[in-house]
């Protein structure tokens, strides 16, 4: 027994090293698991405060651009609303009666306080949290298009997993052909992402629009993701290699909207009854 203790004592540096590294590895694996309410990330109070102060300084330099963008979005929405009203009037469509369907999605606006595009796994921190009704798993969009999903929340802040994250898969369709696949970033260029699992018999062309599919009920259907920029098909590949130019320039993200899907629970429980628990 003494010899054993002596052995451990003699190599104490190595064993401490081993223990610390194993603990770190455990943390990494834990953190990779999607969706959680955790304390040790940038949504914790002190960290988020420091970050948002930094962002406050940085923001002054882009105020003008942000202002223009918001004004443009306003004008766009107003036009859209007016067009919608007109067409409803012409078609003599009565409004949908069920308020639950009308209010299927709520939008909560939030400010980005921390964002990165250079790493393999990029995250975004925003200044709205659990007290504003935000929960892990919700979709996040911006003026231009899809942004990501909520990963974890604290009372006043939330961390989003950005589309620019090699572990994030978003179900999307090619609008023209209705073939659906999965958007997954390859970790290289923050302006482009990959669309996977588009089968060989589809015929995507450069310029096709890619939108979210709405299959997972996280994103509303039809949110713009990007435009196909390059089409490649290996001689024996089953699926196309599609390079998609993202609609949102992530390095210029300032405001985002969190989509609260109010019927998500209902849809999920219905599917659970018929299909069984998701794996």
């Amino acid at each position: 027994m003494d010899r054993l203790f002596y052995f451990f004592y003699q190599y104490r540096a190595f064993f401490t090293f081993l223990v610390l590294e194993l603990f770190a590895a455990w943390l990494i694996v834990q953190n990779n698991q999607y969706q959680s309410t955790k304390f040790f990330n940038s949504s914790n109070h002190l960290a988020a405060n420091i970050i948002s102060t930094t962002q406050g300084v940085k923001e002054y330099f882009s105020l003008r651009r942000i202002n223009t963008e918001l004004a443009e979005e306003n004008a766009q929405l107003r036009t859209k609303l007016e067009q919608r009203n007109q067409s409803l009037y012409n078609l003599e469509v009565r409004e949908i009666k069920d308020p639950k369907i009308i209010n299927r999605f709520d939008f909560v606006s939030a400010k980005v306080i921390s964002n990165s595009v250079e790493r393999f796994k990029n995250y975004i921190t925003i200044n709205k949290g659990a007290l504003d009704g935000i929960a892990p798993g919700m979709a996040v969009i911006s003026v231009a298009g899809a942004v990501g999903k909520v990963k974890s929340v604290s009372d006043h802040y939330a961390v989003l997993i950005s589309l620019l994250n090699t572990e994030e898969f978003t179900s999307s369709v090619i609008k023209r052909t209705n073939h659906f696949g999965s958007i997954n970033w390859d970790g290289k260029d923050p302006l482009y992402s990959q669309l996977n699992f588009i089968p060989r018999h589809a015929d995507p062309v450069v310029g096709d629009t890619v939108v979210t599919s709405g299959f997972n009920a996280v994103f509303p259907a039809g949110v713009l993701v990007g435009i196909i920029d390059e089409v490649n098909l290996g001689p024996e590949a089953q699926f196309y290699d599609l390079k998609v130019k993202l609609a949102q320039d992530f390095s210029k993200l300032a405001f985002v909207e969190i989509v609260r899907s109010n019927l998500l629970k209902e849809k999920d429980s219905l599917e659970q009854i018929t299909i069984g628990l998701p794996k």
Binding site: A24, F40, N44, Y123
Partner: peptide
């Protein structure tokens, strides 16, 4: 190593990359 772990862990909180900086700095 303990100092390295603590420092790495704190940096990780801000980078949302729990464990990565810690393990590299302990090494």
């Amino acid at each position: 190593m303990v100092l390295g772990f603590v420092m790495g862990f704190l940096v990780d909180i801000f980078y949302d990359s729990l464990g990565m900086h810690a393990s590299a700095l302990v090494l």
